[in-house]
Amino acid sequence: MTEDLSPAERYQAFRIRAAEQATALAPFREMYEFDLDPFQIEACKALEAGKGVLVAAPTGSGKTIVGEFAVHLALLQGRKCFYTTPIKALSNQKYADLVKRYGADKVGLLTGDNSVNADAPVVVMTTEVLRNMLYAGSQALRGLGHVVMDEVHYLSDRFRGAVWE
């Protein structure tokens, strides 16, 4: 309760709340009907601070939120974000999710056999497409702020792990 706090403690709490509201994370959190878990907040804050993040947690625990924050952050910063998945079906699903949230003009899709709005600021693609862009030194890499590598457990896949490496 705030009435139990001293004036100095209330002022400090106010400053902390004000600082949190000035971040990109604050409006992102408002997009969800649930509170973020501490690991999600910590990972998102690290992304906003310009750090690379690896999130390892059980299936269904909310790792994708961190990837979606990278998309949000890239759009706020006027940079690109590539969101990679290991298979076309997942790329198609994530593309549909992101189009619903940000609009078809801001989201593209690149798979081995499909190209939609490839110059969009957010492009969902299979990991192989990103690998090929890196090998070719593609101009599409210019302005790239974030790369999300979803479903990284495919690293252990005997036939596809090399793509992740």
Rank of each mutant, 00 (worst) to 15 (best):
F39R: 02
M31L: 15
E42W: 02
S156C: 02
L36A: 10
P7C: 01
V71P: 07
V99F: 04
L130I: 08
D97A: 14
V129D: 03
R79A: 15
A46S: 11
L155A: 14
S91N: 03
V116S: 02
E48Q: 12
M125D: 05
G112F: 04
K88P: 00
A8L: 12
A18K: 11
G143A: 02
G145H: 05
K80F: 06
A56F: 02
R158L: 15
T84Y: 03
M125R: 07
D105C: 05
D97F: 06
V66P: 13
E48V: 11
Q139P: 01
G60N: 13
T85L: 15
A49I: 04
D150H: 01
N117D: 02
R10G: 05
A56R: 14
R131P: 00
F82Q: 03
Y102T: 12
P121T: 07
E20I: 06
S6P: 01
Q40C: 08
L25Y: 14
S156F: 12
S61Q: 00
G103M: 06
A22M: 01
D119H: 12
V123H: 03
Y102Q: 13
R131M: 11
H146E: 12
C44I: 13
E3G: 00
I87R: 01
D119F: 13
V107P: 00
F159Q: 13
N92F: 01
G137M: 11
A26M: 00
A120V: 07
T23Y: 02
A56T: 15
R15M: 15
T64H: 09
N117A: 06
K45H: 13
G103D: 03
A24E: 10
V107F: 09
R79H: 14
V116A: 10
F159G: 02
A57H: 00
F34M: 03
L130T: 06
V129I: 15
A19Q: 09
K51A: 15
A57D: 03
W164Y: 15
N114R: 10
H72I: 09
A46R: 13
